[in-house]
Design a protein around this nucleic acid. Sequence first.
DNA 1: AATATTTACGTTAGTACTTACATAAATTCT
DNA 2: AGAATTTATGTAAGTACTAACGTAAATATT
Lengths: 334, 334
Amino acid sequence: MDIIQQLGELALGSRLRRLSERLAQDVAAIYSDLDLDYEPRWFPVYYLLLQKSPISICDAAQELGITHPMVSQIASEMVKRGVVLELRDENDKRKKMIALSEKGLSMSEKLAERWADVDAAAKEWTASTGFDVLAVLDRLEQALDAKSFQSRIQDHTRKRRWDAVTILDYDPHFKEDFKTINTEWIEQHFTLEEADRRILSNPETEIIEPGGHIFFARYKQEIVGTCALIRCSDGSYELAKMGVLEKARGLQIGKKLLAASIRKAKEDGVPYMTLETSSKLSTAIALYRKMGFVAIPFDPDHPSEFARADVRMKLDLSRYCPYGEQTDAILQRV
Amino acid sequence: MDIIQQLGELALGSRLRRLSERLAQDVAAIYSDLDLDYEPRWFPVYYLLLQKSPISICDAAQELGITHPMVSQIASEMVKRGVVLELRDENDKRKKMIALSEKGLSMSEKLAERWADVDAAAKEWTASTGFDVLAVLDRLEQALDAKSFQSRIQDHTRKRRWDAVTILDYDPHFKEDFKTINTEWIEQHFTLEEADRRILSNPETEIIEPGGHIFFARYKQEIVGTCALIRCSDGSYELAKMGVLEKARGLQIGKKLLAASIRKAKEDGVPYMTLETSSKLSTAIALYRKMGFVAIPFDPDHPSEFARADVRMKLDLSRYCPYGEQTDAILQRV
DNA sequence: AATATTTACGTTAGTACTTACATAAATTCT
DNA sequence: AGAATTTATGTAAGTACTAACGTAAATATT
């Protein structure tokens, strides 16, 4: 029992490879005493030519599920050894048709006998496991056709990252984080305004006490993101002060904070949410849009408190609004 | 459904390879965004170093079940990229000990996360087939450890050849074959003597009518071997005129003829069999010996009819004598 | 102590593929 | 009809291995 075996599914690929190499070597050995102009690697091409002949290089490659350079190389080897003949297609001068020569054809009887032995040996071997090995391979391939291994891995990566982030409600311990996280992103793109300083320094009096909320995202024991719901005079919420630390970008923390905010707003029976942002923040706007927010015109009666704000968006919570309700599995994929 | 799939067990190796390559490619892709000095092919070595460090090149190769040049190459790549440190073993100056560097170790956390995703994806994938894929692989490998694929194929080849040869009793149609087959081998090694000509030209009066038998081996509609049992005055049989055509050598036809002869002798309740041969025919003598014959001294009272004969052998049929009775399966293997 | 054998490792060459690119012919578009 | 695109093939270079050989050091044998 070596490490490759101990690793189980993680080293499945290595194991399949090892097994196939072991077989290939053993199969190669059985041709050695046959004294024919034949190489084991020719098998797929030779076998195909026995059934369909003549055939063009690329058609053969397609039928065999290998690359055309492979067929091209094997074919020229076979031509060199006199096993295959090249003919040119008359209608299409690009095409090189290959076919078994007299010599190539005459080898088939002896080869077919060996193949029958290989087939019988393989059948016996696989049957001895008590499993229908071919069916297992069929299912494995089918499953992979339905969904690539890469995307399966990605799903798990996404899920792990998603689960690694916890959304927390406001706690006085996080007061400083609320300030530093927002200061970081504001100063990166804009300059800190007077209203920013007031709100970021006094979240409790400015947001919580008037009936708002602040959420925090924790990743690896650290607060890396935050966003606030400010209670407006008409009872709606304004989403604001959403920020994620530079180093924690790409973990879909913004989406998770936003989903938590929408969920809370629905819980509280709020009719709609608004937000103000800047057209410079295109990734943020894309996210808001994905979550259902739509742009609304700037109302001259309600000018923004912030100089950087030039976009106003709204999410109508009375209508169907999936992202406040959907499961994590769907959210992760959006 | 391509040809590789249609071929079933015959192309099992190709299929395993294809599957492993598909996995390898997908797995390679998930490291690309990780921005680490890491190559997917390092995996086995890296993983081992995470558990056992430092370790020598050859020890690592052994543990991983790969060749030491592979470990050596991977290790030097890793050294070049600063992931691995080389130390010299003090006690054994041949040994190069490799260990993860600070940098190599620091990568492990991120890598381990990805591995966990790969592992989870693979588990999910294999489980979706409804089979215990790992168990199938275990069984396949175990079965191959117990008996190599090559020897499994050989068994089938042997059996096919064995079954392809039919032993027939004397029939006047075969009279000419009896003569030509024996003439071929006698003239190859010796010269045809007067007694040869007499017996070969008149098998019926010389062998059959005095109570003897002649067997023929048929392979692909052709008589390719023969041997005779000559009834002696004391009731025993003398095995004689055993020959196989040059072109049919290697098919174990001699063994099959001999087995048929011994079986017949036992059936007929004969106490023992003898034969005369030449010390020049070492392969034949080896076969006789395998089948239970032992050399006996030349009895001066019974000089041979043939000048070439200088070895006399005997098989005591009253004692245990496996090869007259054993099944084909055992005979094929002898 | 001298010699033979084994072990550890590196190097080179080979294998069975692939990807990427180049070229020529055919087909489609305008 | 001329230009752009697609298709068929070949070639070069790369990948991830292995096998085979050579060298140096250690160990066993005589």
